[in-house]
Design a protein around this nucleic acid. Structure first.
Lengths: 116, 116
DNA sequence: CGGGATCCGTCGCGATACTG
DNA sequence: CAGTATCGCGACGGATCCCG
C-alpha cells in the first residue's frame, strides 16, 4: 500500500481502506502501539523497535505527525530532546490496535497456524 | 510492508506486527471486508473493487488463501466458477475490520480532518 | 469466466555516512 | 540525541496478451 498519507481525496473508497492508508508503512502500527504506553523519546522508540533504522523511524514518525496521529514536541536543549505522544486522534485508534493485538495473540500464538 | 505472507518466524516481534503482515497488501482488507458480507465470485469482487486489476486481485486472493484467511472453491464447470469465502480464521478478523471501519467513519468522515 | 505469463515502472525501505 | 543526505535494490503493483 504505497503513498501513505498522500491520499487523493476522490480516489479512496470505503472507510476501512482510508483507515489502512494511515496505518500502513512498515512500522507505524508498532510505533502507535508502543506509544499507547505513553510518551516516548526518539531513541526510546528505537530501543523498543530494534529492527527499525533511524531513517525509517524518522520517516514514519513524520507521516504519523502529518496525519495528526501523534504529537511531536521538541525541547530546545543542549542535548536535543524530542518526545512523541499520541494525539487524541491517535489515541482513538486504541480499539483498532488492541483488536489487532488480541487477534494476533489468539491466532498466531507462537508459531502454530502456519499450516493453512 | 513487503513480503506479505512470507514471514520469517524469528524476525517478527509483537502480535500487532504479525497481524499487520497478514493484512497488508494494497487490497487485502477491502477484500476481507467485502467477504464479510458472504461468499463472492472472482468477478463479483472485481466489480465491488473497481480499481483493482485482476492480476493484483488474483495475487492478493492467493496470499489470503495461503495465510488461511479465505477459502477458494473451484467448480469444474464449462463456464469456470470460483468462489471465495472467509475461513473461520478470516471471519475471526471481523472485530479488527469493524474497528477499522468505525474508526474511519468517525475520524475521516467526508474530507475533514485533513488539516493536521 | 477466471485466471496465468511477461514486461516494466515506481517507490518503499535499508545501509551508510555526515551534522547541529 | 535526533536527526538529514545519498545511494541503490527489489518488492509491489499496473498494463497487456494469452489460455483452458
Amino acid at each position: 500500500m504505497p503513498r501513505a498519507s498522500q491520499r487523493k481525496p476522490g480516489v479512496q473508497g470505503c472507510a476501512v481502506e482510508r483507515t489502512m492508508s494511515l496505518i500502513d508503512g512498515k512500522w507505524k502500527i508498532i510505533v502507535l502501539y508502543k506509544l499507547l504506553g505513553g510518551t516516548l523519546r526518539f531513541n526510546e522508540l528505537r530501543r523498543l523497535i530494534p529492527s527499525v533504522t533511524q531513517r525509517m523511524l524518522t520517516h514514519q514518525l513524520r507521516e504519523l505527525e502529518a496525519d495528526g496521529l501523534i504529537v511531536r514536541t521538541v525541547y530546545a536543549q543542549v542535548p536535543p530532546r524530542v518526545e512523541y505522544t499520541l494525539s487524541a486522534r491517535g489515541r482513538s485508534l486504541e480499539p483498532v490496535l488492541l483488536a489487532m493485538k488480541e487477534w494476533g495473540d489468539a491466532n498466531l500464538s507462537s508459531s502454530e497456524a502456519y499450516a493453512a
